[in-house]
């Protein structure tokens, strides 16, 4: 009886193995790896898993998410860029692609990728605790001007996107970038928001999407958003541009493949992702997660990344993060 059980167990395992070896077909003829340069459970990971799920349904082949974390995104992006350009490794590229090489964290630049499509953009916000003394952004900026070096800002590690957003905002408002202190947060926006609710920092400049749960529950308030237009989810929050500060910043996510991937594979992927991005399911997913939707097709996305690469260089230089 026991032996029989063993045989059955082994047989089942054997079969699952044989089936994963899969059949022959046009692209994709086997499992595709989706590299996520950030950890399991985070925003990028959730997006990666959603896209992978939808792509699996579309192509009838498994798209499996692999979290290759480390080096502030450098490890995953490098793994994605230097994979064989056969379409079997695609990468969720994020904004850090345009900043980390300026900081000397990697030699990898945006040029190592071919771009499939962008699907998301989240603007930075200016979030304070609910009982903070500043009613609007102007009061906050006046306070900074009157008491330089007193206020504590946080959101991400030094040189991360929300730090850069803060630097750009102060610069555009005509204030010296060191007129507030940046408190690096080791694990990202969640930790910074914890500090904010505890009253240990004054302002958090992470995306409004990340701060949304606390804003909605009344624990925090948004003074402004660093976007070109008001966000549909936060119609009452003014943009910096309305307040006379010419600055917008945010993070973005999209899909890239290693440079040199065959054009027909890129086309196939691009069409599929654009189709997903226009679907109702995607809209619902992005809304519940609080992510903003921004779709750019391959060529357009590439130009956007190129612009971003230049734009962030100036900001990094202001913050003293540029590696000579």
């Amino acid at each position: 009886m026991k032996k029989l059980l063993w045989v059955v167990v082994l047989a089942v395992m054997g079969f699952t193995w044989v089936f994963t070896l899969s059949a022959w077909a046009a692209y994709p003829e086997k499992a595709v790896t989706v590299i996520c340069p950030w950890g399991a459970g985070g925003g990028t990971d959730r997006l990666a898993r959603f896209l992978a799920d939808e792509l699996s349904k579309k192509f009838g082949q498994p798209f499996t998410v692999v979290n290759k974390t480390g080096g502030g995104g450098a490890v995953g992006h490098a793994a994605g860029a230097y994979a064989p350009p056969d379409g079997y490794t695609i990468t969720i590229v994020t904004l850090e692609l345009a900043t980390m090489h300026w900081m000397g964290l990697t030699d990898l630049t945006y040029e190592a990728f071919d771009y499939i499509a962008q699907v998301n953009e989240d603007a930075a916000g200016v979030t304070v605790k609910a009982d903070a003394p500043w009613k609007n952004l102007k009061e906050l900026l006046d306070d900074i001007k009157a008491n330089p070096g007193k206020l504590l800002f946080s959101g991400v590690a030094a040189g991360g996107i929300w730090d850069l957003a803060r630097i750009g905002m102060l610069h555009a408002a005509g204030l010296p970038v060191d007129s507030v202190k940046w408190i690096p947060s080791t694990t990202g926006a969640a930790q910074a928001l914890t500090e904010l609710l505890g009253g240990h920092v004054h302002v958090v400049t992470c995306s409004l999407a990340e701060a949304a749960p606390y804003i909605k529950s009344g624990q925090a308030r948004a003074l402004a958003v660093m976007a070109d237009e008001r966000l549909p989810a936060f119609p009452d929050v003014p943009t910096l541009k309305e307040l006379g500060i010419n600055w917008s910043a945010g993070t973005w996510r999209g899909v890239g493949v290693p440079k040199g991937t065959p054009a027909e594979i890129k086309k196939k992927l691009e069409d599929a992702i654009i189709e997903i991005a226009n679907s109702e399911a995607f809209k619902k997913f992005m809304e519940t997660n609080g992510f903003g939707i921004k779709v750019r097709r391959g060529e357009e996305f590439r130009k956007f990344v190129e612009e971003q690469d230049k734009a962030w260089k100036t900001v990094l230089e202001l913050g003293g993060y540029l590696k000579k």
Binding site: G70, G72, V75, G104, L105, A157
Partner: peptide, 15 residues
């Protein structure tokens, strides 16, 4: 400071 310490260019050691 965002400066990589004792990593000797090994990306896996960055974190």
């Amino acid at each position: 400071t965002g400066y990589p310490r004792f990593t000797f260019g090994i990306t896996e050691l960055m974190d």
